[in-house]
Deep mutational scan, measured.
Amino acid sequence: MPSETPQAEVGPTGCPHRSGPHSAKGSLEKGSPEDKEAKEPLWIRPDAPSRCTWQLGRPASESPHHHTAPAKSPKILPDILKKIGDTPMVRINKIGKKFGLKCELLAKCEFFNAGGSVKDRISLRMIEDAERDGTLKPGDTIIEPTSGNTGIGLALAAAVRGYRCIIVMPEKMSSEKVDVLRALGAEIVRTPTNARFDSPESHVGVAWRLKNEIPNSHILDQYRNASNPLAHYDTTADEILQQCDGKLDMLVASVGTGGTITGIARKLKEKCPGCRIIGVDPEGSILAEPEELNQTEQTTYEVEGIGYDFIPTVLDRTVVDKWFKSNDEEAFTFARMLIAQEGLLCGGSAGSTVAVAVKAAQELQEGQRCVVILPDSVRNYMTKFLSDRWMLQKGFLKEEDLTEKKPWWWHLRVQELGLSAPLTVLPTITCGHTIEILREKGFDQAPVVDEAGVILGMVTLGNMLSSLLAGKVQPSDQVGKVIYKQFKQIRLTDTLGRLSHILEMDHFALVV
């Protein structure tokens, strides 16, 4: 994948999101292997301009796509893939009243899908469409860049269908997702969380590099694949309309690839034109409109599966009536509230959605109805927002919020430890010299600072030695090549209790 991002070429006709291997024109390309080798690009942008032909009021008969309808489940399912879809609609009884809503608040519980998330729908649909058009064949390999849930859905379907599955996901995604993927037989590649989507090191860039190296491999490409919004247009939206008897006044959905909100909203605009569509985008993402909503100094966020630093091709923002931004604290607070007060075992993005819903639905009156999409299960986040310690460490809970008995030293300040200034190293000294210094002084790690004293990161003896043994660096290389740029900081005025929580999850903390 090139470091400079080429513009994806656009073909003359058809839909841009065809499933299957992508040609340089962004659509299915038939021909000899030699032709494909000559024409197939190194990668295709996940934010390529959409060429979708959908228009409100256009006859369904003019759609270029294969459409399906929700099917009634048999008493005995032939395999677990038949437990994807037909998820329950559940009334939220307490939270709406707590925040003064007059309307009825309903939750579409997508964590009841077989793999635990709304992404099971698009995973199965992308595979079925690729099999139907002859792209996927027995023994082929599926590769997908994902925040985890699409990966789980694909790995689940691949396990049943017999495909090899490789999932490329950023490091910030939970260990629970990784464990589930491994249990399903998927191979996992992790990428830096802070890598831009168009960087060769991003999950998108690495996935395309693997595709170019592995024979008979395919990126189904949830960011561009029409099967993504079509899955929701054909099934999720129809289920909502049936469950609500066609009567709903507002739908609120958090947005990642945009397939969920695009597919549902398009069908609702056709069948229930008075329904307002509300999009939820986390602070630090750029999906919301108008652009002024996205202006923030924050560039990272903890909530998973929603928000991006690019506009995915499948996201149709014209069908969203209003956007709201959400933050991590309210997302996790509301997710825990949904679990504790409503018994809905949902993930953090569901918290984002409901946090926005109780604001947006203030305009609705008694007798009206708001539906929220709860995308995934708490299963993926047992060591994250479900953990009091994690919430404390991230600053989303305060010590006084917890009532468990603490040891005698818990409320003492870090400054009472009488710490001395640490050994520091410059980023320009060599790895070999740094190892000598650390061994001589008896230290395992040291902060790396520039000549102005600005902290650049941390270097550890173990990481340097393993990097040297693996051949990633040489003793003569500058130590700046092996620094940890993500590390926890703590102030002298913070409590030892807070430091204790940090050290339970990290090997060190830097006192500043």
Results as ranks from 00 to 15, higher is better:
residue 88 P to W: 04
residue 236 T to N: 14
residue 71 A to K: 11
residue 205 G to L: 06
residue 168 V to T: 04
residue 93 N to C: 13
residue 138 P to D: 07
residue 275 C to H: 01
residue 35 D to R: 07
residue 120 D to S: 07
residue 242 Q to V: 11
residue 221 D to G: 07
residue 189 V to S: 06
residue 46 P to Y: 00
residue 210 L to I: 07
residue 236 T to H: 04
residue 59 P to F: 03
residue 256 G to S: 01
residue 133 D to T: 11
residue 151 G to S: 03
residue 45 R to S: 09
residue 50 S to K: 07
residue 241 L to Y: 13
residue 273 P to N: 06
residue 9 E to Q: 14
residue 136 L to R: 00
residue 101 L to M: 06
residue 193 T to M: 12
residue 167 I to W: 08
residue 37 E to Y: 15
residue 86 D to P: 10
residue 128 E to K: 10
residue 133 D to N: 13
residue 252 V to E: 09
residue 25 K to T: 08
residue 162 G to L: 05
residue 260 T to G: 06
residue 160 V to Q: 14
residue 219 I to T: 04
residue 243 Q to S: 05
residue 117 S to M: 04
residue 262 T to R: 01
residue 57 G to R: 09
residue 271 K to G: 06
residue 149 N to H: 03
residue 205 G to C: 11
residue 258 G to T: 01
residue 71 A to L: 13
residue 270 E to D: 09
residue 170 P to A: 05
residue 4 E to G: 11
residue 227 S to C: 09
residue 134 G to E: 06
residue 141 T to S: 11
residue 219 I to W: 00
residue 104 E to M: 04
residue 60 A to N: 11
residue 75 K to D: 04
residue 128 E to W: 08
residue 25 K to Q: 15
residue 91 R to P: 09
residue 272 C to W: 11
residue 207 A to Q: 00
residue 211 K to L: 09
residue 218 H to F: 12
residue 154 L to C: 01
residue 208 W to N: 09
residue 165 C to R: 03
residue 184 L to I: 10
residue 59 P to K: 10
residue 145 P to E: 03
residue 140 D to S: 09
residue 35 D to G: 14
residue 254 S to P: 10
residue 170 P to L: 03
residue 201 E to Y: 09
residue 222 Q to C: 00
residue 124 L to P: 10
residue 155 A to C: 10
residue 47 D to P: 06
residue 150 T to C: 01
residue 241 L to A: 09
residue 245 D to I: 08
residue 49 P to Q: 09
residue 242 Q to C: 15
residue 256 G to L: 00
residue 225 N to K: 01
residue 2 P to D: 10
residue 75 K to Q: 11
residue 265 A to C: 05
residue 189 V to R: 04
residue 43 W to Q: 07
residue 129 D to I: 06
residue 59 P to W: 09
residue 31 G to C: 12
residue 93 N to P: 09
residue 275 C to T: 04
residue 31 G to F: 13
residue 115 G to L: 07
residue 149 N to T: 02
residue 262 T to L: 02
residue 268 L to E: 01
residue 85 G to V: 13
residue 47 D to G: 07
residue 9 E to C: 14
residue 245 D to W: 03
residue 147 S to M: 02
residue 17 H to K: 04
residue 91 R to M: 05
